[in-house]
Design a protein around this nucleic acid. Structure first.
Lengths: 233, 233
DNA sequence: CTGACGGTATTGGTCGGACCACCCCCACGG
DNA sequence: CCGTGGGGGTGGTCCGACCAATACCGTCAG
């Protein structure tokens, strides 16, 4: 047995696993700077080209961050960094998968809203109200969408679980919302959306988790059912 | 304005976005074969090296699949393909983030188990029972873990939401479970785990969603609380 | 005519080197 | 003391070559 010759998969794939292992094993801390591409390539016994592919792969995964002229660094490995790729899933999903994604969002969003109702601070509540007001004060769909996103983002943040908030952020990625929202709002769902947002807000003010859960579930569920009908007929 | 010179970010990043756009726009269908690396590089006006980095990035994201000697293909873009990277998040998370991940899993797993209780077929139930029996028939931790994973995987599959099942799969990735499980089981939690699994199974047999939800939430919650205590001191 | 065989063109994988663009730091001069 | 300009280091891009796995197709035996 020659332990220096694992010989599994491509050299690039191996390099990816090795760097991941270094981080998981604590040899590389969040925020720490890595050796240069050239040095890393020599250390792992591969060419710089292959090493660059490995680094690029870990970069898109949100594990590494390359700063031109400075060096390669490990990200803070926070939920937001690693779950950014979740948006890709939403962007490339179509048909039945979109309904499944909305179902997941309904489950998480309702729970997050319930948690927020119990924990939200006055400051956070003020922020939520700001976006609610702004959302109702304009007719520009783009602006409405932006404040809609921020409205739910603030609530998710108030729930106190960064990971959950990051997942919800991915499930509400711009292109995803835009694709579904366009058709949904064309049917004059603005009024209904406003009522639902108002209901969520009331539950937050009352610090009523169960009401918040129900309001959020109904809110997402409305879109979910509409989309299901679109696909079914 | 020269529309041929977007000039935003690195050329590789641009290539990634362009290929993603081609897929999102329907110009590339799932399973379809892409042009050669060399041809793609020419089409987008970049070098083959840069194009390879873009392809590698999309490969690790589960969007593309490169077959040596054959060509590059779009994956089926199913939940499993795209959410495979979710395992990376679990593998690289530590400390408080692990608790957050378990909280997300508790929410999704309890809902999935509830859905499964309502929809599970006799065949699927038999499969679940198979792993439950096998799990109780051995003392080998590795084998127990494998059947434990399969037990929950079958239940998630029976819930009828592939996306949710794929996320749960990622949240139960081997290294994640192994890291947490080791310490948990060392405290003689085998008996408790067996009781909890039995409770989940009973709820499935009875087709009782609420009981299933409660049992699953308690099951994950136990581990969650233990982990929270570990970190707290 | 059919099917197994083998060679060859195609295609992804790896390598090495060259040059550019950008950042950081330090020595120099005000 | 401060700012400032240059130089060395680093990631970004490109090129050309060769290797390795695959797919295709013509050939030949049955």
């Amino acid at each position: 047995m020659d332990e220096t010759a694992p010989q599994k998969g491509t050299v690039t794939q191996r390099a990816i696993e090795q760097i991941k292992a270094m981080i998981a094993g604590g040899r590389l801390e969040p925020g720490q700077r890595l050796p240069t591409e050239r040095d890393l390539a020599v250390q792992l016994g591969i060419s710089r080209s292959s090493m660059r592919e490995a680094i690029r792969a870990l970069t898109v995964l949100g594990v590494l961050e390359a700063r031109h002229g400075s060096g390669i660094y490990v990200t803070q490995l926070e939920a937001g960094d690693l779950l950014e790729t979740f948006g890709v899933v939403a962007d490339l999903s179509r048909g039945p998968r979109l309904v499944e994604l909305l179902e997941v969002r309904r489950i998480l969003e309702s729970t997050a809203t319930a948690l927020a109702a119990a924990r939200i601070t006055p400051d956070q509540l003020a922020e939520v109200e700001k976006h609610l007001t702004a959302m109702n004060a304009t007719d520009d769909p783009e602006e409405i969408l932006a404040h809609d996103l921020a409205f739910h983002r603030e609530i998710a943040a108030a729930a106190g679980n960064e990971t959950m908030a990051a997942i919800l952020e991915g499930l509400s990625s711009r292109t995803f919302r835009a694709r579904v929202w366009r058709g949904y709002q064309e049917e004059g769902a603005f009024a209904r959306t406003r009522r639902e947002h108002a209901a969520i807000h009331r539950a937050l003010v009352a610090h009523d988790p169960e009401a918040a859960r129900a309001a959020a579930a109904a809110h997402v569920g409305e879109v979910e059912e509409w989309l299901r009908a679109q696909l079914g007929g």
